[in-house]
Design a protein around this nucleic acid. Structure first.
Lengths: 125, 125
DNA sequence: CTGCATCCTTAATGATACTG
DNA sequence: CAGTATCATTAAGGATGCAG
């Protein structure tokens, strides 16, 4: 047998997997993947769902995700232009952990807010 | 019944949960939580495990995590100082999703690297 | 050993304007 | 509509030196 364990290790500064972790452990990546979880979406559609994201950031983040094989981009030669983005099979495997982070944030925010005010009170604001 | 769904939504720019997501969807947070997954650790110990992190970043990230109730800090009045950090019960709930991200990065890095070179070739480098 | 303070460099994000 | 380009602003990160 040869299941090869190349010993990729995110805890090592120079390991390529660390760079990869840095990209997926990112708020924009998380929200975009969540936005694409229900299926393909157009540029403008994603922009609406990810409230507050600027076109510039959306463009560059999508490009990075496309480059890493997480997203596929399909441009239709129409006028006006129409471009659709969709998670690849690889991107699908990111759904679970990233959605988990999103729901964690929503479900524990009250606990976090409490901890925060307690801390700020304990310290000097 | 009243399970209250305050409608926290990370997709909304001004929702506090979005700020919370931004903090946990972060490479340093992910690696520190992973480093603390096996149990309590000292400042220097974490620093060793999270290869390449500077003291400044480690200090501020730990402080943020402490403030949000994800980590507890215990300082022993000794000389030289000894300080231990440990995940709180709340922090424990972050282990699974963050470890998942770390292992994702390690297990899919080859696929990512392939996608990357394919993309760079397809485009103009 | 920890952690704070400071200075400096770089990366991320915002806001606009403009083109296919 | 999607995307690029530019400029200005801000935040994150790295390097040191010092102190409890």
């Amino acid at each position: 047998m040869e299941t090869e364990q190349p010993a990729w290790n995110v805890m090592l500064e120079t390991c390529p997997s660390r760079t990869s972790l840095a990209k997926i452990a990112n708020k924009w990546t998380a929200m975009i993947v969540i936005a694409l979880s229900d299926g393909p979406a157009r540029f403008g559609g994603i922009r609406q769902r990810v409230d507050g994201i600027t076109g510039k950031v959306l463009t560059s983040t999508l490009r990075d995700l496309e480059r890493d094989g997480v997203v596929v981009r399909t441009a239709y030669a129409e006028m006006p232009p129409r471009v659709e983005y969709e998670l690849t099979p690889l991107g699908q495997t990111l759904r679970a952990p990233l959605i988990a982070l999103g729901t964690w944030a929503e479900q524990h925010i009250e606990q976090v807010l409490q901890a925060r005010s307690a801390f700020d009170q304990r310290v000097g604001r």
